[in-house]
């Protein structure tokens, strides 16, 4: 009886191995919008492929965040009763995007671009595209794009005014990402930079050269403050490396000396 029990336990051991929890790291399911549209050819499936390359996808903003509906229920995914909005008409696009990009919408509506909405003027997707929307940079202001509607001269002046500050914002953003990657808490600085970047980007949409120039200095000062914090942290990390180098070198020396001591003992017989 006891022997049988032992045999049973021995046979069951491999089956109990999952208790040792070897990770399988499976992938979780996507929303029903992506499951359905992602498998369709042509215009119905194209938005999914475009969205996957976008800044929205990178930040976890999915179909239902803009278009509404129920992303968990295939039957009611596009039910207006579940908040489904569908695709906006051209004149409704600023309000559609402006639900999240509030400041940009305000400056845009007050600008010459916004005033021309419905009369051949541009709206959000004219410059940013829709599903494949990328992180906004001054490169969006270019002669090819702007010349579709008007002369590039004024746009070029705005670009010249913002390009340096935008470059510095990108640099600071990269430095913060590097610090975050090492376990440094950067949330407060990231929030400050996020707010600064949003305020800075919204003023482009006013398409007012004087306004952009007058506010750039304030943004530069704020950026310097964040950069100062980053520099102090980077210096601290550098000091850690120097001390670390000293400790590692001492340990290696200790190891070599101990080996030499062992060798001298060994020869002693």
């Amino acid at each position: 009886m006891r022997r049988n029990r032992f045999r049973l336990l021995l046979a069951a051991w491999p089956l109990l191995f999952p208790l040792l929890a070897v990770p399988s790291f499976a992938q979780t399911a996507e929303t029903v919008c992506i499951q359905c549209h992602g498998s369709q050819p042509g215009p119905l499936g194209a938005p999914v492929a475009a969205w996957r390359t976008s800044i929205h996808a990178a930040n976890g903003i999915s179909c239902h965040n803009c278009h509404g509906g129920d992303p968990t229920d295939m039957a009611n995914a596009m039910n207006p009763a579940r908040g489904f909005l569908g695709a906006p008409k051209e004149n409704d696009i600023p309000a559609f995007c402006g639900r999240c990009h509030v400041g940009v919408k305000e400056d845009y509506l007050a600008s010459a671009h916004g005033r021309a909405l419905g009369h051949g003027g541009p709206q959000c997707v004219t410059c940013h595209t829709n599903h494949a929307v990328q992180k906004a940079t001054p490169d969006l202001i270019n002669s090819q794009s702007c010349s579709r509607c008007h002369d590039y001269g004024r746009a070029e002046q705005i670009k010249a005014a913002v390009v340096e500050t935008d470059r510095r914002i990108t640099e600071v953003d990269r430095s913060l990402a590097d610090l975050h990657r090492t376990g440094i808490v950067t949330k407060e600085m990231e929030d400050e930079l996020f707010s600064l970047r949003n305020r800075f980007h919204r003023i482009f949409h006013s398409v007012d050269v004087d306004k952009v120039r007058s506010q750039t200095a304030d943004f530069q000062t704020e950026l310097q403050k964040i950069q100062g914090h980053i520099t102090a942290i980077e210096a601290q990390l550098q000091r850690r490396k120097v001390w670390g180098g000293v400790v590692v070198a001492l340990l290696v020396c200790w190891g070599i000396v101990a080996l030499l001591v062992f060798e001298s003992y060994r020869k002693e017989k």
């Binding site: 340990l251 290696v252 200790w254 101990a258 080996l259 062992f262 003992y265």
Partner: peptide
């Protein structure tokens, strides 16, 4: 001790 401990010490240090 002290022979092999010296070698132990070396590998521990490495």
């Amino acid at each position: 001790f002290p022979h092999y401990v010296a070698k132990d010490g070396a590998l521990v240090a490495f």
